[in-house]
């Protein structure tokens, strides 16, 4: 395990935790530690002492590059074509059903 920070210098480490098998890693919080080994020890204390995690990661905060610019993440123009709500088919479906002489889907209908 590498934890080659300057000895004796405390710095923040961000903690990611997995709550149960199969879950994604989620950010939990952070700890102050002089190296990755101690950061893991502290993360264990802070984020799993009640057995609330099955897996932890620590990442030196300065190794995280962040992006929180809403112009880039939530651009203002319409993106509805990328979302389910952007497709409203009720009227077309009603028209198609009427045209084909059906009033509602018949899941149990046999062959034509």
């Amino acid at each position: 395990m590498t934890g080659a920070a300057q000895a004796g210098v405390l710095e923040p480490w961000e903690v990611f935790r997995r709550e149960k098998d199969g879950d994604p890693m989620k950010h939990g919080g952070s700890v102050m530690a002089p190296d990755s080994v101690l950061a893991l020890h502290y993360a264990r204390e802070m984020y799993s002492r009640r057995q609330e995690s099955v897996h932890l990661w620590v990442v030196r905060r300065t190794d995280i590059h962040d992006l929180a610019d809403l112009d880039l993440l939530q651009p203002p123009l319409d993106r509805s074509f990328k979302k389910p709500g952007g497709y409203v088919m009720r009227d077309k479906l009603a028209a198609a059903r009427e045209q084909s002489g059906e009033s509602k889907p018949r899941a149990n209908k046999g062959a034509r």
């Binding site: 610019d69 112009d71 880039l72 651009p75 203002p76 123009l77």
Partner: peptide, 9 residues
Amino acid sequence: AKIRREERY
């Protein structure tokens, strides 16, 4: 104003 926000990226 909206377009310029997107063009930054």
